[in-house]
């Protein structure tokens, strides 16, 4: 009678779990980033692949060593460091000297993520802070964009991101395909949109934040007399809106909060772009709104069912 009894597992409900794991979530983000990686290789040549590899390796190594030194369980397997590495690399020009990604990786993983408690505890998007640190510390090296060896035919040879070049305008097709100067991952709108489709199809992210963010920028651009498509397609807007602003830890939980978050991002980006003395405002707007997330979460929540009235 007792032969089935001795080893029975007794555990709390539920007895089944979804197949989704942290690793799978991060894996989906990595898959969504692959089209942009391919596009960057075609546009900027193999050097961009090298930068991506070095940045990602530095991020993963940084997390591994931290876990090793602190004698914590090794968390490299959840792939979040790979995502941070890819995103940081996508924010660097392909010409960057290879010690820069290492500094960026240390800032992103060690300072922003691990010192605050690891995954889920970072106060801002690690890759954004890594990029901002590098942009502030090495402004010249971070903005020297050019085409080392384009594999696809393109006629424009620009030394700066299109937002910096107000006089000469690129064709919209160039903007859409990304055959112009810029950091590794931001230029090809087509590849980024493919990534967005994957993220939505796998339900990794909701559309709310990218839609409201890009929508706000579009509306404000129209109101301020700017070229709407030009503002939306150039610079880091799509990369930021799809991959950076939707980071779980640093974006609000509720849809109402997500809308406020997206509006704030759009407004700050436009303020910096149109009236600031920088050409690019996506990183700073994401950083600022990241810091406001706890307050947004506290203010915009859902009332539980039946919680409005009490008997």
């Amino acid at each position: 009678m007792d032969k089935h009894t001795s080893h029975l597992v007794v555990s709390p409900v539920p007895h089944i779990r979804s197949a989704l794991t942290t690793r799978r979530v991060m894996g989906n983000v990595i898959i969504a980033l692959l089209p942009a990686l391919l596009a960057s290789t075609l546009i900027f040549g193999l050097r961009s692949l090298l930068v991506v590899a070095v940045t990602t390796a530095a991020c993963v190594l940084c997390e591994y060593l931290w876990c090793r030194i602190r004698r914590l369980p090794n968390t490299v397997g959840d792939l979040s460091a790979v995502v941070t590495g890819l995103l940081l690399a996508f924010n660097l020009p392909s010409t960057v000297p290879l010690f820069l990604p290492v500094i960026g990786a240390i800032t992103a993983i060690l300072v922003v993520k691990e010192l605050f408690g690891g995954i889920g505890c970072n106060f801002a998007n690690p890759a954004i802070v890594g990029r901002i640190t590098l942009a502030v510390s090495f402004p010249a090296r971070m903005t020297s964009y050019f085409f080392p060896a384009p594999l696809v035919a393109c006629d424009a040879l620009t030394g700066a991101t299109p937002l910096a070049v107000t006089a000469e305008k690129l064709s919209l097709l160039d903007l859409f395909l990304g055959t112009h100067g810029g950091v590794i991952g931001e230029t090809c709108a087509l590849a980024l949109l493919l990534g967005l489709i994957w993220l939505l199809a796998t339900r990794t992210i909701e559309l709310t934040i990218p839609l409201v963010y890009v929508g706000t920028v579009a509306v404000l651009s129209a109101l301020c007399g700017q070229n709407v498509l030009y503002q939306v397609l150039s610079g880091g807007l799509l990369l930021g809106a799809i991959f950076m602003a939707t980071d779980y830890t640093t974006s609000p939980f509720f849809r109402s909060g997500k809308i406020i978050f997206g509006l704030g991002l759009g407004i700050i980006t436009c303020l910096i772009r149109f009236w600031g003395n920088m050409h690019e405002g996506v990183s700073y707007s994401i950083l600022i709104m990241n810091l406001l997330v706890p307050y947004i979460n506290a203010k915009f929540r859902r009332t539980p069912m039946g919680g409005g009235t009490r008997s």
């Binding site: 080893h7 029975l8 007794v10 555990s11 409900v13 539920p14 089944i16």
Partner: peptide, 21 residues
């Protein structure tokens, strides 16, 4: 196969038993 978990009720809210008697 040998059962390792015996649940009375459904998998979401049922309770795991420690004794098949």
């Amino acid at each position: 196969e040998e059962p390792h978990k015996v649940i009375i009720g459904g998998p979401m809210m049922g309770s795991a038993q420690m004794d098949v008697n």
